[in-house]
Simulated scan of single mutants.
Amino acid sequence: MSSPYTDPGTQPGPAVPPPAPAPAPAPRAGWLVAAGIGALVAVGLGVYGRIHEPTFFAVNLGGFSSGTAAKAWLATAAFALALVQLLSALLMYGRFPRVTAPSWTGTVHRWSGRLAVLLTVPVAVHCLYALGFQSGEPRVLVHSLFGCFFYGVFVAKMLLLQRSGTPKWALPVFGGAVFTALVALWLTSSVWFFTTSGLSF
Rank of each mutant, 00 (worst) to 15 (best):
W31H: 13
G165I: 06
A116V: 08
L87M: 11
A75Q: 14
Q11N: 09
F146Y: 03
L159V: 07
T195G: 14
V142E: 02
W169G: 02
S103N: 12
Y151M: 07
L141D: 02
R95V: 07
S197W: 12
P4D: 02
F201M: 14
H52K: 12
V178G: 02
S144L: 04
R110L: 06
G63E: 09
W111I: 03
F150L: 05
S200V: 05
Y93E: 03
V59T: 09
T100A: 14
A72E: 10
A78H: 11
R114E: 10
V178H: 01
S189E: 08
R139N: 11
L83N: 07
W73L: 09
G94R: 01
R110S: 12
V183H: 02
A177P: 03
V16N: 11
A124P: 05
M158E: 15
S135Q: 12
L86H: 08
A20Y: 12
S200Y: 08
L86E: 04
Q134V: 13
Q11W: 10
S2C: 09
L61Y: 09
H52W: 07
V123R: 08
S135A: 15
A15K: 11
A70E: 10
L40V: 15
Q134I: 09
P167I: 11
P27S: 11
A15N: 10
P25E: 10
W73P: 08
Q85K: 03
S144H: 02
P14R: 15
P138F: 06
Y151H: 05
W73Q: 09
R98P: 00
P172N: 01
K168W: 10
A72N: 10
S164R: 15
S66C: 09
S103V: 14
D7T: 08
W192Y: 11
A69F: 10
L141T: 12
S135T: 14
G132Y: 02
D7M: 09
V125H: 04
F133K: 00
W111R: 00
G136F: 13
L61G: 07
V121W: 07
A35M: 10
P17D: 07
A29E: 14
P8K: 10
T107V: 15
P122I: 02
S144A: 15
S66T: 14
G198V: 01
V142H: 06
P18G: 15
P23I: 13
T105R: 00
G175R: 01
P138V: 12
L86W: 12
F194T: 05
G176L: 06
V59E: 04
V16G: 10
S144D: 03
